[in-house]
C-alpha cells in the first residue's frame, strides 16, 4: 500500500515540477508548482510527519502560492518570455551530476549505518512530540524565526508600499519642514 502511494506521489511530483521548470507560460508554471506542493504534503504524511504536512499545506500552498499569485497579477503575465538559447545540454548535465552527488553524499551515512538519533520521543502522537521538542530543545531557533518573519514582513511592506516611490526627505514640496538655523527670512 505504502509503496503504491509513494510511487504515485513521486511520479506526480516529478511531472508537475518538470512542467514548472520547462513551461513558458507563467500561469501554467505557477499552477503546477502549487499542485506539486500539495503532493509533497502528501509525501510528508506518508513519512509520518503529520504536523509538517499540515504546515506545508497551510504555509506553502496557502500563503506562499497566494503571494505568488498576487505577484503574477502585478506583472504582465500574458507576455511570453523568450528564453535565451544557452547551452541547454550543459545545464542538464550539471543538474544530473548534482543529483547524483547529492544522493551519494546523503546516502553514504545511511548505508554505512552511521547515524544515531538524538531526540527520540516515544509514545505521543506526532503533533504532541513536535510540540514537546519545539518548545524545549528548539526554542531559541523558534523565537529567532519569529523575529525573522517580522523583519521580512516589514521589508515587504516598505518595498512594495505606494508612498515609498519618492524619498521621505523630499515629500514636503514647500520645504516647510526645513530647519534653517536662525535666519528664516533669507530665501
Amino acid at each position: 500500500m505504502e509503496q503504491i502511494a509513494f510511487y504515485i506521489f513521486s511520479v506526480l511530483t516529478i511531472g508537475l515540477f518538470l512542467v514548472t521548470v520547462l513551461s513558458s507560460n507563467v500561469l501554467y508554471a505557477m499552477t503546477s508548482l502549487a499542485a506539486g506542493m500539495v503532493i509533497i504534503s502528501g509525501l510528508f504524511f506518508l513519512v509520518g510527519a503529520d504536523f509538517l504536512g499540515v504546515v506545508q499545506l497551510v504555509v506553502y500552498v496557502g500563503a506562499i502560492m497566494a503571494l505568488y499569485s498576487f505577484g503574477m497579477m502585478f506583472f504582465d503575465a500574458t507576455k511570453d518570455i523568450k528564453e535565451k538559447n544557452t547551452n541547454s545540454y550543459l545545464v542538464f548535465a550539471l543538474g544530473g551530476m548534482i543529483a547524483v552527488m547529492f544522493v551519494v553524499i546523503f546516502s553514504a551515512p545511511v548505508i554505512g549505518e552511521n547515524i544515531q538519533a538524538t531526540y527520540f520521543v516515544t509514545g505521543a502522537t506526532n503533533p504532541q512530540a513536535v510540540g514537546l521538542i519545539l518548545f524545549t530543545k528548539y526554542l531559541i531557533p523558534f523565537e529567532v524565526a519569529a523575529i525573522m518573519l517580522l523583519v521580512a514582513m516589514i521589508a515587504g511592506i516598505i518595498l512594495a508600499g505606494k508612498k515609498m516611490d519618492d524619498s521621505l526627505t523630499t515629500r514636503d514640496e514647500n520645504h516647510e519642514e526645513d530647519t534653517t538655523f536662525g535666519l528664516k527670512d533669507e530665501k
Partner: peptide, 30 residues
C-alpha cells in the same frame, strides 16, 4: 530513524522560505 530533528529543520526551512518570498517579491516589484 524516529528522530524529530529533521522535521524541526524542515519546519524552519518553511519559515525561511516564506520570508524569502515576501522580501523577494517586494524587490521584484521595485
Amino acid at each position: 530513524y524516529g528522530d524529530l530533528s529533521g522535521q524541526m529543520f524542515a519546519f524552519f526551512i518553511i519559515a525561511v522560505a516564506a520570508s524569502e518570498v515576501a522580501v523577494g517579491l517586494g524587490l521584484l516589484i521595485v
